[in-house]
Design a protein around this nucleic acid. Sequence first.
DNA 1: ATGAAAGCGCTAACAG
DNA 2: CTGTTAGCGCTTTCAT
Lengths: 312, 312
Amino acid sequence: VTTLFDVARRAGVSKSTVSNVIRDSAPVAASTRRRVEAAIAELGYHPNVVARSLKSRTTFALGLVVPEPTNPFYALLVLGAERAAHERGYAVLVANTECEPETEEEAIGALIGRRVDGVIIAGVSSGSRIHESLLDRGVPVVLAGFGAAGDERLGVVDTDDEGAMEQVVEHLAGLGHRRLAFVRHHLDETSGERRAAGFAAAVARRGLELVQAGAGATAIAAHNDALAIETIDRLEREGRRVPDDVSVVGFDDVPLASHQRLELTTVRSDGREIGRRAAELLIDAARAGGFVSRREVHPAVLVVRRSTGRAA
Amino acid sequence: VTTLFDVARRAGVSKSTVSNVIRDSAPVAASTRRRVEAAIAELGYHPNVVARSLKSRTTFALGLVVPEPTNPFYALLVLGAERAAHERGYAVLVANTECEPETEEEAIGALIGRRVDGVIIAGVSSGSRIHESLLDRGVPVVLAGFGAAGDERLGVVDTDDEGAMEQVVEHLAGLGHRRLAFVRHHLDETSGERRAAGFAAAVARRGLELVQAGAGATAIAAHNDALAIETIDRLEREGRRVPDDVSVVGFDDVPLASHQRLELTTVRSDGREIGRRAAELLIDAARAGGFVSRREVHPAVLVVRRSTGRAA
DNA sequence: ATGAAAGCGCTAACAG
DNA sequence: CTGTTAGCGCTTTCAT
C-alpha cells in the first residue's frame, strides 16, 4: 500500500509534484519527472482512485443496469459499454436486475451510494421510475436498447424497432401472409411494447389482420430469437411445419440463429455498438457536468433466412 | 449531495451518532435513533461509499475478469457472482478481456487502482500471470470456471472437467467409437487445455485412439457448444451426417442445445452456482483479511441427446 | 449514550 | 517549476 507520499519521499520531491507528473496537470522539469517516474516504477505505485474520487468529486465509474445477462444482445451491450468505458479510464459497475422491481431499486440505491458519474439502463420493468431518482440527483442517465418517452433529461441510444418491424411486416406481406401474430415474453420489459406496437402499426397500415398466435396466424414474429425458437419448437411439436405451414421471425440474430438446422429469419441489432455509444455519451455528459440530451436511433436490419416462406 | 453532517445538523446530533445509527456500530437511544432516521428519510441521504472506503480501507467491491461475455456460461457466472455480491453489499466491477493479454494487464491495473477487496478471474490467456500481481499486493483471488496449478494463495471454484470428459469418453466408447478427436477454440484460454487433457487421458485409459478431427474420427468432442455446433455445420456441409457418420459432443448446455433441431449431446456445468460460490468465498476471505485457500470442484453432468450415436 | 478531533490518500489553490 | 496547506465525507478512538 504505497501512497503518493511514499513516492514523493523516494523521489525527493513533494506530493504535488508527484501528482503533477501522474496527471500531467502542470509542467514538471524533465529531470524531476524522470526521478518521479523511476520511484513510481520501483514502488509499483498505483494511485488510489478512491482518494482521488473523494477529493475530485467524480468516481470515473459508470453504472450499468441489465435485465437479462444471458440474452446475447445484452451481453454484447455490456461488452461494448465496458470496453468504451475502460478506454476512457472509467470503470463499470454492473447490476443484473432480471427485471425485478425490488432488485432494481436496490441496484439504484447502491449506484447512488457509490456516486457513479452516470448510469446506463439497458432495460427495466414496465412501470419503473428508477431513472427519476437518478436524474433528480443530477446523475446523467442513458437508456440503451429501449426507448422511452418522457423526461427531457434522459439520453437514449436505441435500435430502430419500428423500422425493423416495418421491414418484418413488409417481408411477410410480400410472401402473401394476411393473418399475423406477435408473441412476447412474459418478462415485464419495456422494449417488448415498442416492438409489439411497431408490428401492430405496420400490420394495420397495410390492412392486414393482427391475431393471437395459434388463432389461425400464418406468420408469427417474436420479441427475440429465444422466443422465436421456442415458438418453432412448439409449432413442430404440434405437427405444424416451419416455414411450410407457419412462418416465424425472431429478433437479435443470436449466433445460433444462422445455424443451418435453424436458419432463422430475424432482425439484427448491434448490441455492442449501442453499448459503446451509450457509454461515450454518458462520459461526455459527465465531463461536461450535464445530462445526456441526445437521442440516437441505430438501424436494425432484417436478415432473411429460411424460417419464413410463402403463405400456405 | 447531502452529507452525514447535514443529517446530523437536521437531527440535532453529532456526526458520530448518525454514523452509529446507520451502521448500528454502537448503542443509540431509541428516541435519538428515530430523529436521525427521520432526517435521513427527509433528506434522501445515501452514505457516500467513497468516503467510507477511504477511511475504512475496504471498498466493498469485487473485480470480475471475464474472457467471453457472449458465452452463456460466463454470462451466468457473472450473474451468479453479481447477485451474491450485491446480497452482501458488495459491488462488482467487470472487465471483459476477450483473452487479450494487454487488455488483461490494463484491467488488473484498474482493479488495483480502485482497491477492490478481491478479484474473480473467470478466464485468462494461457501464459497469464496476472493473478500474481494481485496476490502480491494482498488482494485475494479466486479462479472461477477454470483450474490452475500453482500458487497456494489462489482459491479455485471449478467445474470437474476431467470427470466430465471421463463421462463423455465413456459414453462414446459405449457407442463403439474407437477413433476420437477433440476440437478446441483458437482462443488462447487456459480451460481449453484441461478439457483436452482430460479427454486425452480418458481416451488413453481405454486404449482408444486420439486423432485429429477429420483424420477418420467417428466421434468429436468440442470445447464448448458453440464450437460443437460449428463442427456439426461443417460436417454436414461436407456431406457427413450427424450422428450417423460422426458423433459430436458439446460443453456448456447452452439454451439452444436442447432445441429439437439440434438435440446436442453436451455437458452441463452450473455457471451461476460457480459465480455465486466464487463471490462468497472471496467476500469471506476479504472480511477475514486473508486469501482464499479453498478449492472447490463442482460436478458437471453429461446430457445425452441426439448428436451422438453408434459408431458407423 | 453522545460529541470532539484526527486522519484515510489525494487534489487544488496559493505561495515562493 | 516546486512546496505548503486545506479540505473531500466518513470512521474511530477517546472524552464527557
